[in-house]
């Protein structure tokens, strides 16, 4: 923990080896959270769908709502072809949703607050969309980078711009998720440190400490919102990129 009088907001993102012998193979607490998120997501679907009731219970309703939400999102955004990409989108969405929501709990680690993780996920999405575009349109896919109705001379400028714009998705998609998750946790840490520091000042500090605690309480609710929203944003942007790859604009 931080020395008294200093706010140490970033040490919470430090990775350390987890699970003893496994940890020495580079298995950190971030990886543990990924496994936990995956197990929880699979467990919700498996346990929820076991009754197979006509009138669903609570768990089954939750599982069905998640399924239908992701299904509608992929079909409405990508088009009818979205059905083929639905398993991918659903997996991505559930993984991030559970990971982000777990990260709100104290002592838990948010794996999406590491740029390595989000960058790896983004690379997976972008490489997949590129391969899908090449698979469906063969070499015609490269016409995606050539805007229509433009004088030929300008293409020298516009094609590199389009290529850069395409490649910048890798950064914007990964940084968006990473920055949102990290910023929220830094805020929580800062206001948590305020509570302790102000509370230590004696009776005069109790009111501001209470205020900071109130702010932290609101921030936790806000974090839950951000966790769900960012999982959704990541999934819908993946859908939009897949739509572009399938339809070429």
């Amino acid at each position: 923990m931080a020395a008294p009088g200093k706010i140490d907001a970033l040490s919470q993102f430090k990775l350390y080896p987890a699970l003893g012998p496994l940890g020495h193979m580079g298995f950190s607490q971030s990886n543990v959270m990924m496994v936990v998120a995956t197990v929880l997501a699979l467990g919700l679907l498996w346990l929820g769908m076991r009754p197979r009731a006509m009138v669903p219970g609570r768990l089954q309703s939750a599982a069905e709502m998640l399924y239908e939400f992701a299904y509608n999102m992929s079909v409405e955004t990508i088009g009818p072809e979205g059905r083929r990409f639905f398993p991918f989108i659903f997996t991505l969405f559930l993984f991030l949703l559970f990971g982000n929501l777990l990260g709100v709990f104290p002592y838990f680690y948010t794996f999406a607050s590491g740029i390595v993780v989000t960058l790896a996920l983004t690379l997976m999405v972008v490489i997949l969309t590129t391969l899908v575009g090449l698979w469906i349109h063969k070499l015609h896919f490269f016409s995606y980078f050539v805007p229509q109705g433009v004088p030929k001379a300008l293409l020298v400028l516009l094609v590199p711009i389009e290529v850069i714009s395409y490649l910048s998705r890798i950064i914007s998609l990964s940084v968006r998720l990473f920055a949102n998750m990290m910023a929220g946790h830094v805020m929580l840490e800062v206001f948590g440190a305020f509570v302790i520091m102000l509370g230590g000042l004696g009776i005069a500090g109790w009111l501001p400490a209470g205020l900071a605690l109130g702010v932290n309480t609101i921030l936790i609710g806000f974090e839950v919102l951000v966790a769900v929203l960012q999982a959704y944003v990541f999934a819908i942007l993946s859908c939009i990129y897949l739509h572009d790859a399938v339809h070429l604009h």
Binding site: V75, G79, L157, I161, I164, S165, H247, H249
Partner: peptide, 26 residues
Amino acid sequence: PLGGAAGVLNVWRMFAPRRGAGPADT
């Protein structure tokens, strides 16, 4: 400068109406 232009293009894409978007196709 090409990168700056691509950034502006990204922002334009963000706010421009999408051509032939998903729901119409379905």
